[in-house]
Protein backbone atom coordinates (compact mmCIF):
# COMPACT_ATOMS: atom_id res chain seq x y z
CA UNK A 1 0.00 0.00 0.00
CA UNK A 2 1.21 3.50 -0.81
CA UNK A 3 1.87 5.75 2.17
CA UNK A 4 -0.72 8.30 3.19
CA UNK A 5 -1.42 10.47 6.19
CA UNK A 6 -4.11 9.59 8.66
CA UNK A 7 -6.45 11.69 10.70
CA UNK A 8 -9.19 10.81 13.12
CA UNK A 9 -11.23 13.98 13.55
CA UNK A 10 -13.42 14.18 16.62
CA UNK A 11 -16.17 16.27 15.06
CA UNK A 12 -18.20 16.32 11.89
CA UNK A 13 -17.04 19.84 11.14
CA UNK A 14 -13.39 18.89 11.37
CA UNK A 15 -14.00 15.77 9.30
CA UNK A 16 -15.73 17.81 6.62
CA UNK A 17 -12.83 20.20 6.49
CA UNK A 18 -10.33 17.40 6.11
CA UNK A 19 -12.41 15.63 3.48
CA UNK A 20 -12.60 18.76 1.40
CA UNK A 21 -8.83 18.57 0.81
CA UNK A 22 -7.68 17.06 -2.48
CA UNK A 23 -6.82 13.37 -2.17
CA UNK A 24 -8.66 12.95 1.13
CA UNK A 25 -10.59 9.72 1.48
CA UNK A 26 -13.32 8.95 3.96
CA UNK A 27 -12.88 5.75 5.92
CA UNK A 28 -15.44 3.99 8.05
CA UNK A 29 -14.51 0.40 8.78
CA UNK A 30 -11.93 0.51 6.01
CA UNK A 31 -13.22 -2.70 4.49
CA UNK A 32 -13.89 -1.12 1.11
CA UNK A 33 -11.31 1.66 1.00
CA UNK A 34 -8.24 -0.29 2.09
CA UNK A 35 -8.46 -3.11 -0.48
CA UNK A 36 -8.78 -0.46 -3.17
CA UNK A 37 -5.72 1.37 -1.88
CA UNK A 38 -3.82 -1.94 -1.66
CA UNK A 39 -4.64 -2.78 -5.26
CA UNK A 40 -3.65 0.68 -6.31
CA UNK A 41 -7.00 1.32 -7.98
CA UNK A 42 -7.54 4.36 -5.76
CA UNK A 43 -5.06 6.73 -4.20
CA UNK A 44 -5.26 8.54 -0.91
CA UNK A 45 -3.35 11.58 0.24
CA UNK A 46 -5.04 11.43 3.59
CA UNK A 47 -7.29 8.80 5.07
CA UNK A 48 -9.91 10.46 7.24
CA UNK A 49 -11.21 8.03 9.84
CA UNK A 50 -14.80 9.04 10.45
CA UNK A 51 -15.58 6.69 13.28
CA UNK A 52 -14.83 9.26 15.95
CA UNK A 53 -16.57 12.04 14.09
CA UNK A 54 -19.97 10.73 13.15
CA UNK A 55 -22.42 9.06 15.51
CA UNK A 56 -22.68 5.33 16.05
CA UNK A 57 -25.65 3.55 17.53
CA UNK A 58 -29.32 2.93 16.98
CA UNK A 59 -31.76 5.39 18.55
CA UNK A 60 -35.54 5.52 18.63
CA UNK A 61 -36.85 8.33 16.44
CA UNK A 62 -40.59 8.64 16.86
CA UNK A 63 -42.06 5.46 15.47
CA UNK A 64 -38.87 4.73 13.62
CA UNK A 65 -35.14 4.49 14.22
CA UNK A 66 -32.18 6.67 13.54
CA UNK A 67 -29.01 4.76 12.81
CA UNK A 68 -25.74 6.57 13.28
CA UNK A 69 -23.48 6.50 10.23
CA UNK A 70 -20.66 4.77 12.10
CA UNK A 71 -22.88 2.02 13.48
CA UNK A 72 -21.30 -1.31 12.69
CA UNK A 73 -23.27 -3.51 10.32
CA UNK A 74 -23.07 -6.34 12.87
CA UNK A 75 -24.73 -4.16 15.48
CA UNK A 76 -27.66 -3.62 13.15
CA UNK A 77 -27.87 -7.35 12.47
CA UNK A 78 -27.99 -8.35 16.13
CA UNK A 79 -30.20 -5.54 17.48
CA UNK A 80 -33.31 -7.28 18.84
CA UNK A 81 -35.63 -4.33 18.14
CA UNK A 82 -34.36 -4.20 14.60
CA UNK A 83 -35.05 -7.88 14.07
CA UNK A 84 -38.53 -7.51 15.51
CA UNK A 85 -39.69 -4.33 13.80
CA UNK A 86 -37.43 -3.87 10.79
CA UNK A 87 -36.78 -7.48 9.85
CA UNK A 88 -35.67 -6.69 6.33
CA UNK A 89 -32.88 -4.48 7.61
CA UNK A 90 -31.69 -6.94 10.24
CA UNK A 91 -31.74 -9.74 7.65
CA UNK A 92 -29.89 -7.65 5.08
CA UNK A 93 -27.30 -6.62 7.66
CA UNK A 94 -26.84 -10.25 8.68
CA UNK A 95 -26.22 -11.22 5.06
CA UNK A 96 -23.49 -8.66 4.41
CA UNK A 97 -20.10 -10.16 3.51
CA UNK A 98 -18.56 -12.14 6.40
CA UNK A 99 -18.91 -11.95 10.20
CA UNK A 100 -15.64 -10.06 10.58
CA UNK A 101 -16.44 -7.61 7.80
CA UNK A 102 -19.78 -6.95 9.47
CA UNK A 103 -18.01 -6.17 12.74
CA UNK A 104 -15.76 -3.71 10.93
CA UNK A 105 -17.98 -2.18 8.28
CA UNK A 106 -20.15 0.79 9.07
CA UNK A 107 -23.66 1.48 7.85
CA UNK A 108 -22.62 4.54 5.88
CA UNK A 109 -19.61 2.74 4.49
CA UNK A 110 -21.80 -0.12 3.35
CA UNK A 111 -24.18 2.29 1.60
CA UNK A 112 -21.33 4.15 -0.10
CA UNK A 113 -19.14 1.17 -1.09
CA UNK A 114 -17.75 0.89 -4.57
CA UNK A 115 -19.03 -1.74 -6.98
CA UNK A 116 -17.54 -5.23 -6.78
CA UNK A 117 -17.15 -5.55 -10.58
CA UNK A 118 -14.04 -7.61 -11.28
CA UNK A 119 -12.91 -5.22 -13.96
CA UNK A 120 -13.41 -2.17 -11.74
CA UNK A 121 -11.22 -3.89 -9.13
CA UNK A 122 -8.64 -5.21 -11.58
CA UNK A 123 -5.26 -3.70 -10.70
CA UNK A 124 -4.03 -3.69 -14.28
CA UNK A 125 -7.09 -2.21 -16.00
CA UNK A 126 -8.73 1.19 -15.82
CA UNK A 127 -12.35 0.74 -16.71
CA UNK A 128 -14.87 3.37 -17.72
CA UNK A 129 -16.21 3.74 -14.19
CA UNK A 130 -12.71 4.40 -12.93
CA UNK A 131 -12.19 7.08 -15.55
CA UNK A 132 -11.08 4.98 -18.50
CA UNK A 133 -12.82 4.67 -21.84
CA UNK A 134 -13.83 1.01 -21.88
CA UNK A 135 -16.41 -0.94 -19.94
CA UNK A 136 -14.42 -4.16 -20.10
CA UNK A 137 -17.36 -6.08 -18.72
CA UNK A 138 -19.53 -5.40 -21.75
CA UNK A 139 -16.97 -6.81 -24.16
CA UNK A 140 -15.67 -9.36 -21.71
CA UNK A 141 -17.03 -11.70 -19.06
CA UNK A 142 -20.12 -10.19 -17.44
CA UNK A 143 -21.76 -13.32 -16.08
CA UNK A 144 -22.43 -11.67 -12.73
CA UNK A 145 -23.23 -8.19 -13.97
CA UNK A 146 -26.46 -6.27 -14.42
CA UNK A 147 -29.63 -6.58 -16.43
CA UNK A 148 -29.58 -2.99 -17.57
CA UNK A 149 -27.65 -1.73 -20.58
CA UNK A 150 -25.57 1.41 -20.12
CA UNK A 151 -22.09 2.91 -20.08
CA UNK A 152 -21.26 0.69 -17.11
CA UNK A 153 -22.97 -2.61 -16.36
CA UNK A 154 -21.72 -3.16 -12.82
CA UNK A 155 -24.28 -3.64 -10.11
CA UNK A 156 -25.12 -2.02 -6.81
CA UNK A 157 -23.62 -4.20 -4.06
CA UNK A 158 -25.10 -2.84 -0.81
CA UNK A 159 -27.56 -5.17 0.90
CA UNK A 160 -28.43 -2.40 3.32
CA UNK A 161 -29.35 -0.08 0.47
CA UNK A 162 -31.99 -2.50 -0.78
CA UNK A 163 -33.48 -2.87 2.70
CA UNK A 164 -33.39 0.83 3.49
CA UNK A 165 -34.83 1.75 0.13
CA UNK A 166 -37.76 -0.56 0.76
CA UNK A 167 -38.12 0.97 4.23
CA UNK A 168 -38.38 4.55 2.86
CA UNK A 169 -35.23 5.54 4.72
CA UNK A 170 -33.90 9.05 4.60
CA UNK A 171 -30.29 10.14 4.82
CA UNK A 172 -28.84 12.93 6.93
CA UNK A 173 -25.54 14.53 6.06
CA UNK A 174 -23.57 17.38 7.59
CA UNK A 175 -25.06 19.62 4.91
CA UNK A 176 -28.59 18.29 4.45
CA UNK A 177 -31.11 17.48 7.13
CA UNK A 178 -32.84 14.71 5.25
CA UNK A 179 -33.33 13.34 1.76
CA UNK A 180 -34.56 10.03 0.39
CA UNK A 181 -31.95 7.28 0.24
CA UNK A 182 -32.45 6.95 -3.51
CA UNK A 183 -30.97 10.42 -3.86
CA UNK A 184 -27.71 9.28 -2.30
CA UNK A 185 -27.04 7.55 -5.60
CA UNK A 186 -26.51 8.89 -9.07
CA UNK A 187 -25.72 7.31 -12.39
CA UNK A 188 -22.13 7.84 -13.37
CA UNK A 189 -21.77 10.09 -16.38
CA UNK A 190 -19.00 10.79 -18.84
CA UNK A 191 -18.19 13.94 -16.87
CA UNK A 192 -18.49 12.48 -13.36
CA UNK A 193 -17.92 8.80 -12.81
CA UNK A 194 -19.02 8.81 -9.20
CA UNK A 195 -22.14 6.90 -8.26
CA UNK A 196 -22.48 8.59 -4.85
CA UNK A 197 -24.24 11.95 -4.86
CA UNK A 198 -22.31 13.68 -2.11
CA UNK A 199 -20.42 16.94 -2.47
CA UNK A 200 -16.78 17.34 -1.49
CA UNK A 201 -16.72 17.58 2.27
CA UNK A 202 -20.20 16.17 2.62
CA UNK A 203 -20.58 13.06 4.71
CA UNK A 204 -23.42 10.86 5.80
CA UNK A 205 -24.11 11.22 9.52
CA UNK A 206 -27.23 9.12 9.95
CA UNK A 207 -29.89 7.10 8.24
CA UNK A 208 -33.45 7.27 9.52
CA UNK A 209 -36.25 4.83 8.96
CA UNK A 210 -39.35 6.92 9.68
CA UNK A 211 -41.72 4.12 10.63
CA UNK A 212 -41.71 0.35 10.89
CA UNK A 213 -43.41 -1.60 8.14
CA UNK A 214 -46.23 -4.00 8.87
CA UNK A 215 -44.08 -6.77 7.46
CA UNK A 216 -40.75 -6.95 5.71
CA UNK A 217 -38.26 -9.48 4.40
CA UNK A 218 -34.95 -9.73 2.53
CA UNK A 219 -34.34 -12.45 -0.04
CA UNK A 220 -30.92 -12.94 -1.44
CA UNK A 221 -28.88 -15.30 -3.58
CA UNK A 222 -25.12 -15.58 -3.38
CA UNK A 223 -22.50 -17.79 -4.96
CA UNK A 224 -22.16 -20.04 -1.95
CA UNK A 225 -23.97 -20.58 1.33
CA UNK A 226 -22.18 -17.76 3.13
CA UNK A 227 -19.69 -14.93 2.59
CA UNK A 228 -20.68 -13.90 -0.88
CA UNK A 229 -21.72 -10.60 -2.29
CA UNK A 230 -25.28 -10.86 -3.53
CA UNK A 231 -25.84 -12.07 -7.05
CA UNK A 232 -29.22 -10.50 -6.46
CA UNK A 233 -30.98 -9.24 -3.35
CA UNK A 234 -34.61 -8.19 -3.04
CA UNK A 235 -36.06 -6.31 -0.08
CA UNK A 236 -39.77 -6.03 0.50
CA UNK A 237 -41.61 -3.91 3.06
CA UNK A 238 -45.37 -3.67 3.40
CA UNK A 239 -46.88 -0.52 4.77
CA UNK A 240 -50.63 -1.17 5.00
CA UNK A 241 -51.68 -1.98 1.47
CA UNK A 242 -48.53 -0.68 -0.17
CA UNK A 243 -45.56 -2.94 -0.78
CA UNK A 244 -42.20 -1.38 -1.52
CA UNK A 245 -39.73 -3.60 -3.33
CA UNK A 246 -36.08 -2.80 -3.88
CA UNK A 247 -33.29 -4.78 -5.48
CA UNK A 248 -29.52 -4.83 -5.70
CA UNK A 249 -27.32 -6.87 -7.99
CA UNK A 250 -29.34 -6.10 -11.10
CA UNK A 251 -28.53 -2.52 -12.05
CA UNK A 252 -25.96 0.22 -11.40
CA UNK A 253 -27.87 1.66 -8.50
CA UNK A 254 -30.12 0.17 -5.84
CA UNK A 255 -33.42 -0.04 -7.60
CA UNK A 256 -37.04 0.32 -6.60
CA UNK A 257 -39.07 -2.34 -8.35
CA UNK A 258 -42.68 -2.18 -9.46
CA UNK A 259 -44.33 -5.13 -7.66
CA UNK A 260 -46.58 -5.59 -10.66
CA UNK A 261 -43.69 -5.67 -13.13
CA UNK A 262 -40.40 -6.12 -11.30
CA UNK A 263 -38.43 -6.87 -14.46
CA UNK A 264 -39.43 -3.65 -16.19
CA UNK A 265 -36.45 -1.90 -17.69
CA UNK A 266 -34.20 -4.87 -17.01
CA UNK A 267 -33.91 -6.73 -20.30
CA UNK A 268 -30.73 -8.61 -19.40
CA UNK A 269 -27.45 -8.71 -21.28
CA UNK A 270 -25.78 -11.43 -23.30
CA UNK A 271 -24.51 -13.30 -20.24
CA UNK A 272 -26.98 -12.17 -17.58
CA UNK A 273 -30.36 -13.33 -18.84
CA UNK A 274 -30.39 -15.96 -16.10
CA UNK A 275 -30.54 -13.20 -13.50
CA UNK A 276 -34.02 -12.24 -14.69
CA UNK A 277 -35.23 -15.61 -13.46
CA UNK A 278 -33.40 -15.13 -10.20
CA UNK A 279 -34.84 -11.65 -9.71
CA UNK A 280 -38.31 -12.92 -10.48
CA UNK A 281 -37.95 -15.73 -7.94
CA UNK A 282 -36.56 -13.55 -5.18
CA UNK A 283 -39.25 -10.96 -5.82
CA UNK A 284 -41.98 -13.56 -5.51
CA UNK A 285 -40.37 -14.98 -2.38
CA UNK A 286 -40.12 -11.51 -0.85
CA UNK A 287 -43.69 -10.64 -1.74
CA UNK A 288 -44.90 -13.93 -0.31
CA UNK A 289 -43.00 -13.26 2.90
CA UNK A 290 -44.65 -9.89 3.49
CA UNK A 291 -48.13 -11.20 2.73
Amino acid sequence: MKPFTYSAPASVAEAAERLAAPGARAMGGGTDLLPQLQRGIRRAGEVVDLRGAVPAGILAAGQGVRIGAATRVADVARDPDMAARFAVLAQAAGAVASPQLREMGTVAGNLCQAVRCWYYRHPDLTCWLRGGDTCYAQVGDHRKHGLEPGDCISVAPSDLAAALLALRAVVTTNRRESFPLADLYRKATAGDRSTIALDDGELVTAVTVPEPPDASAYMRAGERAAWSFALCGVAAARFGGEVRLAAIGVSNLPRLLDPADPLAGLPGLEMTGWKRRLLETLTQDALAAVG
Binding site: G30, D49, A74, S98, P99, E103, M104
Partner: peptide
Protein backbone atom coordinates in the same frame (compact mmCIF):
# COMPACT_ATOMS: atom_id res chain seq x y z
CA UNK B 1 -7.38 -8.24 1.34
CA UNK B 2 -10.04 -9.23 3.81
CA UNK B 3 -11.37 -12.34 2.12
CA UNK B 4 -10.14 -15.33 4.11
CA UNK B 5 -10.23 -14.63 7.86
CA UNK B 6 -6.73 -15.98 8.62
CA UNK B 7 -5.70 -12.67 10.21
CA UNK B 8 -8.70 -12.48 12.56
CA UNK B 9 -7.89 -10.92 15.94
CA UNK B 10 -10.04 -9.31 18.61
CA UNK B 11 -9.91 -5.54 18.80
CA UNK B 12 -11.81 -4.28 21.83
CA UNK B 13 -13.72 -7.53 21.80
CA UNK B 14 -14.73 -7.50 18.15
CA UNK B 15 -13.39 -10.16 15.78
CA UNK B 16 -11.87 -8.13 12.96
CA UNK B 17 -9.55 -8.69 10.04
CA UNK B 18 -6.19 -7.30 11.02
CA UNK B 19 -5.02 -7.16 7.40
CA UNK B 20 -7.75 -4.61 6.66
CA UNK B 21 -7.36 -2.61 9.82
CA UNK B 22 -4.96 0.29 9.99
Amino acid sequence: EGTCGSCTVLVDGRAVLSCLTL
